[in-house]
Amino acid sequence: MAHIDNTDPLLQEITGPTPGQMLRKRVFGHQGLLIGAVVLIILLFIAIFAPLLAPHDPYAQSLMNRMEPPVFLGGTWEHPLGTDHLGRDYLSRLIYGARVSLLIGAVAALISGVIGTAMGVAAGYFGGRVDMVVTFLINVRLAMPVVLVALAVVAILGGSLQVVIVVLGLLLWDRFAVVMRASTLQVRGREYVAAARAIGASTPRVILSEIMPNIANNLIVVITLEMAHAILLEAALSFLGLGVQPPTPSWGLMVSEGKNMMLFEPWLVLIPGAVLFLLVLAINLMGDGLRDVTAPENRS
């Protein structure tokens, strides 16, 4: 093309970092995010390799060795974190308990994420009647106290890992719907969406390839928040005896089983309480960090 002046200042070298490079730089400069991610990865690793890491069978009872104290309280290395009221190795139960917590957190967040994202994106993109129906459902859901409803449902259906996961998954979609609706509303009016539609792109294509990538950062943040939420709710339900049933090793259940001995053997409650706290803290640190580093790029 002879008519184009290639000395044009417009064509100067493009040197800025790609969005990917910028993201990488921000991730590695964010301490909270890194700490949260490292703790979470370690816990994930522990959950996956539980059978290799646990020194004992978490279900094996030994009534001879009940409530042995952890090593730092004068116990033996045979049971580094002591044993519970049935003589089961506390460290092994704790390690297997990570599986229950992470599984419930991940699957419940996945179920509620799919429901809430579908509703929120549809409401934000289509507006009108769809939006009215979704907003109504969100309000209905927000009017229901989660713990009470979960308690009632679990009381009727009986507690089990599957029931707890499904009940939490079906209850925790509200924040996904609210956040995804607002994000979609914001992105829907951008000119690149109009451009894609003018090109002839179908509605699913516009939603999946133009809108979703631009709201995924908010989705990730909500996923982490709801994972932590689900993990805490499971612990609460199990503590109340309406969650995961014994003898499954769940941290909430461990706290519950230890609570009668709390005055004499406080570590029975403090150890599972501390790891629960650590897990939720790590997830929240990561969520906050992700929100910081994926905040939309500035315009120039």
Partner: peptide, 27 residues
């Protein structure tokens, strides 16, 4: 086909220039 006012809003920030320009061909 359109050319819009604001080139900061008319290009999807998550897509490479190749993806943006080839979208009509793919669609």
């Amino acid at each position: 086909q359109p050319i819009f006012q604001d080139p900061y809003s008319s290009l999807n920030p998550r897509k490479s220039i190749f993806d943006i320009v080839s979208l009509p061909l793919r669609v």
